[in-house]
Write a protein that binds this DNA or RNA. Structure first.
Length: 244
DNA sequence: GCGACAG
DNA sequence: ATCTTGTCGC
């Protein structure tokens, strides 16, 4: 597949202000409602779920893409690209987006949904990495982050959540969405039984063409033995072996 | 100046 | 993200 909205392909040479303006346009083009097929079809066909993750080696970014269907890996591809700019909170997609889009070029089978490492709507301008990739390719995407960029948990996360629990993340003054808008969920895919050690939740948010609720459902469903959903975990491992 | 923030 | 050994606990 290739960009359906080439004007949104991340351009690292833009000024910071131009990048932020671009993100506003991307958020306007994004759909934070369900427009995807993740349920098995009447014929028993399982959805194709993809996971993308990046690893770095000096100034080279490697993006690894893994497609899974019914628990089986059906495709693995990757791409590399030089990192043109440093990591800047809020502008991550302009650093890593290029390599990610390259990894999708040549994909014959289009995934039903893509799990992206990072935030989607949980972003100052509601245009995180997952949203940027989703809108540019016009493919359903979900942001899966290990820490919270912005927004406010509806309930305190000071106490560990039990496996299967989730807490809504609401927009506050740092986010462009109206205060109180549910922009994502803290999702506890796994948890220890003991009291001394505990696992932190994942921060899941809509990228494009997915609602916050469905995003959380999909991630919970794709995580089995580990904290990370399987497509993301395998993409992470693949990126690691490509870099070593 | 302080705060503060994905990967 | 990446730099890095051991160590705690299931």
């Amino acid at each position: 597949m290739e960009p359906v909205r080439p004007e949104f392909v991340p351009d690292p040479s833009l000024s910071r202000a131009e990048m932020e303006t671009r993100q506003t346009d991307i958020a306007d083009a994004a759909a934070f409602t369900d427009d995807l097929a993740v349920e098995p079809t009447a014929l028993g066909e399982q959805p194709v779920v993809a996971g993308v993750d990046q690893a770095f080696d000096g100034d080279t970014a490697t993006s690894a893409l893994v497609l899974i269907q019914g628990g089986e890996v059906i495709k693995r591809t990757h791409a590399t690209a030089p990192t043109a700019i440093p990591y800047i909170p809020g502008l991550l997609s302009f650093r890593e987006g290029g390599a990610i889009l390259d990894a999708f070029v040549g994909l014959e089978r289009e995934p039903d949904v893509v799990l992206v490492d990072g935030s989607g709507r949980i972003h100052f301008r509601e245009a995180g990495l997952a949203t940027h990739i989703g809108v540019t390719l016009d493919v359903p995407t979900i942001g899966v982050a290990k820490s919270l960029l912005c927004g406010q948990p509806r309930e305190s996360l000071d106490e560990p959540l039990g496996a299967g629990e989730r807490v809504a993340i609401e927009a506050d003054e740092d986010v462009t969405a109206p205060d109180g808008t549910v922009i994502g969920y803290a999702v506890q895919t796994r948890q220890y039984d003991s009291d001394s050690r505990h696992i932190n939740p994942l921060y899941v948010s809509p990228g494009h063409r997915v609602s916050a609720e469905t995003a959380a459902d999909v991630v919970a469903r794709q995580a089995a033995e580990y904290k990370l959903p399987e497509p993301t975990r395998l993409a992470d491992a693949y990126a690691g072996e490509l870099t070593s």
